[in-house]
Simulated assay, not measured.
Amino acid sequence: MLHIGCHLSSSKGFAAMGRQALELDADTFQFFTRNPRGSKAKDLDPADAAALVSLMEEHSFAPIIAHAPYTLNLCGAEEKNRVFARETMADDLRRMEHVPGQYYNFHPGSHVGQGVETGITLIAEGLNAILTPDQTTTVLLETMAGKGSEVGGRFEELREILDRVELSGKMGVCLDTCHVSDGGYDIIGDLDGVLTEFDRVIGLDRLKAIHLNDSKNPIGARKDRHARIGEGFIGLEALARVVRHPALKDLPFCLETPNELPGYAREIALMRQQAEQLQ
């Protein structure tokens, strides 16, 4: 069975997101832990979090994905920005323990001219300051498109970060289809080859979730502009192969396409239909 959902607003709380996911025929979802362009988080209601846990158990949800704010940069050039990112992520991870066993996804960061190697070092140092042995949340590095000074546009960069994290068992990777295509990986014509390369460099056991997105740009553009399913350069046929692939089919898939809820419902239904078809 395809585990698929979309990005939902957390403004009404945990349980409301779970109910909304069910209305969309989703069995997972993603949400921002706080304002994606800011820093303030709403007060957490433990009873609301417990209600979501019960709903997820009752309806056999796949793990859900909390997404860190875009403003965080563990490898920023200024120390105050790195400290802000570490403190915010540490707070997010404490809050996530109210919904244990889920995923926390973040963009590795931008080295802003310091160089990739320095960026990797700073990201790993930040994670080593944040992760705790008793946390149940798995932290996911997201594959990036490689625009500007982004770290994580190549699998090797993610592997270097993972190798330097002391509590590496608390880490995984989220593969974004738009990002990897924009980054130059040919998931359209050679999905098997891309996954073989991922397995060689990182290991498929590290792959925990998929962001399922089409792209407004051709392969290798390094732009990172998401498109609705079937309306971009990747296309429905290639994305259908992604959800059907035996190495991926049991992972949670999350749509981050430019949609409102009715559009997400249509895409969820479409991809469930595609997943059920024979390869």
Rank of each mutant, 00 (worst) to 15 (best):
M17Q: 12
I64D: 00
V194Q: 08
R164T: 00
I187H: 08
R241W: 08
T132Y: 05
N35K: 13
L8Y: 12
G172Y: 06
S54I: 09
G169F: 15
Q277C: 03
A221L: 10
T138M: 12
L122A: 09
Y103N: 01
S54F: 05
T136Q: 15
L158R: 09
A90G: 01
L127V: 03
I120Q: 06
S11Q: 15
K80E: 05
K42C: 01
E125V: 00
L212W: 08
F198Y: 04
L22Y: 06
V116T: 09
D190N: 14
I120L: 07
M17F: 11
A265H: 08
L127S: 04
R159C: 04
G101H: 15
A238G: 06
A15Q: 08
L141C: 13
L74Y: 13
F198W: 02
K223M: 12
K249Q: 12
D182H: 02
Q30F: 08
I219L: 12
E125M: 06
F14E: 04
A227Y: 06
G76W: 13
D91R: 07
L195Y: 09
V201Q: 11
L236V: 09
S110L: 02
H111N: 13
A209V: 04
A15K: 13
A240L: 03
L251Y: 09
G113L: 14
I64H: 05
G235N: 10
I4A: 03
L191V: 08
L24G: 03
S39T: 13
C174H: 05
F29R: 01
G18K: 02
V165S: 09
F84M: 06
D92Y: 05
G203K: 02
L278G: 15
D214P: 10
F32D: 00
L261E: 14
